[in-house]
Amino acid sequence: MNLFRLLGDLSHLASILVLLHKIQTSRSCRGISFKTQALYVAVFVARYLDLFWRYISLYNSAMKVFFIGSSCYILYLMKYRYRPTNDPSIDTFRIEYLLVPCAILSLIFNYNFMPTEILWSFSIFLESVAILPQLFMLQRTGEAEAITTHYLAALGIYRALYIPNWIYRYFTEGVIDPIAVTAGIVQTGLYLDFFYVYFTKVLQGQKFELPA
């Protein structure tokens, strides 16, 4: 564990708490892509079911339980409790365009051709693009509530912090995880446009609005 990874994980944790706070206080999931949230459930279940056969630390296990539990809870809130506030007509990204390529990539790029390792690779690839339906929705509506942008910023910062973590681990432990690093760089790259608007507008007190 190093500071980059710890701060990254805390940022990830914070992003989910911000999202829950947004949904609970506004009693609405307006502006949140159900598809992205469903993809995160798939990512966490595919990757963190190793809870049952791989023990790393209490920290690691507790985070895994939290991420699986909270992502399922968010889906429940969107699908049932606040269903009327969820507008599928603007959540139109075709997720099969993400699922199929990720499935194929995970069959080609994995560390061992066995179901658990293929699932692990699949989850890494899928996580890297799971935010696309959300960003696509943002692009379509052209604006977002401030709190939704804080959620996205925390999520993006989590991924960005994993990059110095890998560099640090390469020099201190001599390890490198090419699959995670490649997917992680792609994932962070997807946030660059968003970060630009977030740091130049939202953090200056302006509304999050994309140029028409």
Partner: peptide, 10 residues
């Protein structure tokens, strides 16, 4: 080539 990590990250 350095060894691959043991999936110890989240």
């Amino acid at each position: 080539v350095p060894p691959v990590q043991a999936h110890d990250e989240l």
